[in-house]
Design a protein around this nucleic acid. Structure first.
Length: 193
DNA sequence: AAAATTGACAACCGCGATTCT
DNA sequence: TAGAATCGCGGTTGTCAATTT
């Protein structure tokens, strides 16, 4: 059977948003608030599908967005949260006010992945890359050893700090890093063991 | 100076989860 | 309670600017 499309594709615009479209979306949401995304485009006079409107608003037009470069503190927080949560970008974004999941995901793929690789760490597992006979940092072997050790120690510390609370089916992760996150419990969420 | 490559990021797509009827 | 409708997430793609060859 299959799922019906989220919108009538023949009558919707695609690609980059124009200034006029942005203004229509902003003024509609200012007047009516975020609501039913499916009916919003028609009500706002936009030839876009609801999904596209939602994405544009959340990732670009929302007034509380921070934008601009990520700080070193944000970098480290993202790395730490990713080591615990994996690619749960929306959860990670929830801990970084003014940042969106899409922004963090893009930043991860373009900057942080490389940063971890340069530390000799696998960006997915956050564990040292151990390829026999291959030195990932031929020029700075000493620095590699130190940062790998530091990172491993941090990961272990966080794993030990993670605890499961039984009330309400929520996980409270006390990272012992001036940071506590609460998230709905999913059986698929794997904590470091 | 032109072509090719790389980097950055906005936007799209498919699908699982949730809500509604 | 089942199926449809909608939402939200994560992976992927497209596009443009900067850099390299």
């Amino acid at each position: 059977m299959g799922r019906s499309p989220c919108c009538e594709k023949a009558h919707t615009n695609k690609g980059a948003w124009t200034k006029e479209e942005d203004e229509k979306l902003i003024s509609y949401i200012k007047a009516h608030g975020e609501g039913c995304w499916r009916s919003l485009p028609k009500a706002a006079g936009l030839l876009r599908c609801g999904k596209s409107c939602r994405l544009r608003w959340i990732n670009y037009l929302r007034p509380d967005l921070k934008r601009g470069n990520f700080t070193a503190e944000e970098d480290e927080l993202i790395i730490k949260l990713h080591s615990l949560l994996g690619n749960k970008w929306s959860l990670i974004a929830g801990r970084l006010p003014g940042r969106t999941d899409n922004e963090i995901k893009n930043y991860w793929n373009t900057h942080i992945k490389r940063k971890l690789l340069s530390r000799g760490l696998d960006p997915q597992t956050h564990r040292p890359i151990d390829v026999p006979g291959r030195d990932p940092f031929p020029s700075t072997p000493k620095q590699q050893d130190t940062s790998m050790a530091d990172q491993d120690a941090t990961t272990m510390k966080m794993a030990q700090a993670a605890r499961v609370s039984s009330d309400g089916g929520y996980l409270d992760l006390d990272l012992n890093l001036d940071l506590t996150i609460s998230l709905p419990y999913h059986s698929s969420l794997q904590l470091p063991s």
